[in-house]
Design a protein around this nucleic acid. Structure first.
Lengths: 210, 210
DNA sequence: CTTATACAGTAACATTGGTTACACACCTAA
DNA sequence: TTAGGTGTGTAACCAATGTTACTGTATAAG
């Protein structure tokens, strides 16, 4: 039994399944900002997040990006899951937001466990549910909020994921994630700084009162 | 056996399950533009679409709306499905786009059939997969397209759903669906008319060459 | 027929966000 | 120390979209 698997998933799966996961799963580690999967990649196994955090992005033909949501410990990528079951290619891009540890489950096990373990089935359904909600939230954000509000939400999420009020990031990277331009982000950040909401520094933003 | 259920789902489910669906399901009919479900409604059964079409909308606190996607014959609402399984309230609003016939399945059957019928399980997974893809498409649309492109896409979808090149709709209704203002839609529609893409009339738009 | 209402056309203007251009500060490698 | 690259600040401008206001016309209700 892999201790980390136990730590992250013991409240979700029974002993026997945890054992199976530890046996057939392959642990993979990613450095911060390392690419985990690209759009169009063939999906051959399903990742369970053990530690760290992952950023899920959508990309259009022109290479324009948009941050969809973050995944944390105990999450799985419902997109990938969906791809596994449908045997289709990845529709999203995933990048490690922090140093991240995953355990990869071969697709074959998916179907086997779905009938064998009720807890697995519930996990799969639960994941779909969470992901759909998260997608709705993403849609709300881009449909109903202005850029300044989106930026605030972004900084909040970012600070939460990194468990740090000092967010290490460049304006350009924020612009990519929110699908806008660097100048726009610099402009809005400056406004926030003047209001005392944040403090700006080269390569980092200190969150004071979001 | 209900003939319409057979017609719509015989290529998805086996005879025995079709029989069960016909027995426990309750047929409901909705007139065009009739509300099917509102945000916050408690979900107690899962709808399978037999005929017609449904418009799925998201709504924010201020009552601002946004069209998410359409459902057609053979579809189910993965959102509702998700709510059933999670025993949560509806996160979306559904309105009949055409005269629509549904068969409602009590939640209890969900779990039972999931273990009993492989075809049912596949249908559930397939529905989630389709819905996630549809949501991604929606996100692409609002994130990467300008209003004129979104309007074109809207008219295309609308014409397809109604199987008619003459779309019965007001500018105001389009504005609600795309979450913009009537004036903006009128402006863009006029441009399209001048280009010969559509022909405008009171309460209807004739699609010429999208 | 008359009136009220809903729908559509359009101008003028405001706001948001995107673009271009350039200055300057910080950092690293030579 | 200097040169080059990267990150940030800011102005000026432009384009897209949203807002307000007013027009006229079709349609339905009385």
């Amino acid at each position: 039994m892999v201790q980390e698997v136990f730590d992250a998933y013991s409240f979700v799966f029974e002993e026997e399944l945890l054992e199976e996961i530890s046996t057939v799963g392959i642990i993979k580690e990613f450095k911060e900002n390392e690419r985990i999967i690209e759009i169009g990649d063939h999906v051959t196994s399903m990742p369970l997040l053990i530690s760290g955090a992952i950023k899920i992005l959508r990309e259009d033909q022109d290479g324009d990006e948009l941050l969809l949501y973050f995944l944390e410990r105990g999450d799985t990528c419902a997109m990938t899951l969906s791809c596994c079951l449908g045997h289709t290619k990845s529709e999203i891009r995933a990048v490690a937001e922090l140093p991240t540890k995953l355990i990869m489950i071969p697709i074959e096990k998916m179907e086997e466990w779905t009938s064998k373990y009720k807890s697995w089935m519930n996990f799969v359904f639960e994941s779909y549910h969470t992901r759909l909600s998260e997608m709705l939230d993403t849609i709300d954000t881009i449909a109903f909020l202005n850029m300044d509000e989106r930026l605030l939400k972004y900084l909040r999420d970012k600070a939460k994921i990194n468990q740090n009020e000092l967010v290490q990031i460049t304006h350009q990277q924020i612009a990519y994630d929110l699908h806008t331009s660097r100048v726009v982000i610099s402009r809005l950040l400056k406004k926030l700084e003047l209001k005392g909401t944040i403090a700006l520094n080269r390569n980092s933003i200190k969150v004071i009162d979001l």
